[in-house]
């Protein structure tokens, strides 16, 4: 899909109030979005659904880094957004919230559930710039990792021994 240039897409509804985009881990939406940016200034509500459930079964470090959709361009194209719901998007961090804060002064509700890279450093600017914000949904934005190095080193040792057995049976 990312190889498709969407040149044939010449029409798009221009008075949309609500838009929901479901992301993939690897498909970049820029080619599609480039055709759509000019039509989304009327949006009030934007849902972008990330890949939180999909990436839990794979290795998150490998998949979550791709910014498959450009939040800065969206906020520049849709300045009338009242509700922004970013659900389970692995790459969203405070820089994206800063971008939203700088462009969406009418924002009333921001949902960042399961966006685990958020640390909150952007909240000060968000609440200062977007004075109409009434609703903040931050469920599961905290994550605690416990790394047990002893167990890790034992596992590595086991792996090493197994590898050696294969090399020299």
């Amino acid at each position: 899909m990312q190889l498709h240039d969407f040149n044939d897409l010449n029409e798009f509804p221009c008075n949309l109030k609500r838009l929901c985009i479901c992301l993939s881990e690897v498909i970049f939406l820029e080619a599609f979005m480039r055709r759509v940016y000019g039509y989304i200034s009327s949006l009030n509500t934007l849902h972008i659904i990330g890949t939180i459930e999909k990436s839990s079964s794979s290795v998150p470090e490998e998949t979550d880094n791709y910014e498959t959709i450009n939040i800065s361009k969206i906020k520049a194209s849709a300045p009338n957004l009242r509700v922004i719901n970013l659900y389970g998007i692995g790459f969203i961090d405070d820089s994206h919230v800063e971008a939203i804060a700088s462009g969406c002064i009418h924002l009333q509700c921001l949902a960042l559930n399961y966006c685990t890279r958020i640390t909150g450093t952007s909240f000060k600017n968000l609440m200062n710039r977007c004075e109409k914000v009434q609703c903040l949904l931050l469920q599961n934005t905290g994550e605690k990792y416990r790394i047990e190095f002893d167990r890790l080193s034992r596992r590595l040792q086991d792996c090493f021994l197994v590898s050696c057995c294969y090399i020299n049976p």
């Binding site: 640390t119 450093t121 000060k124 200062n128 109409k132 949904l137 931050l138 934005t141 994550e143």
Partner: peptide, 24 residues
Amino acid sequence: IDLGIQDEAMIAVNWSSTKLLELD
């Protein structure tokens, strides 16, 4: 390692001047 919203970031906001009504 704690990721996610940090105490310092939450305290840094002047919540008294906001219109916040709903929080999760």
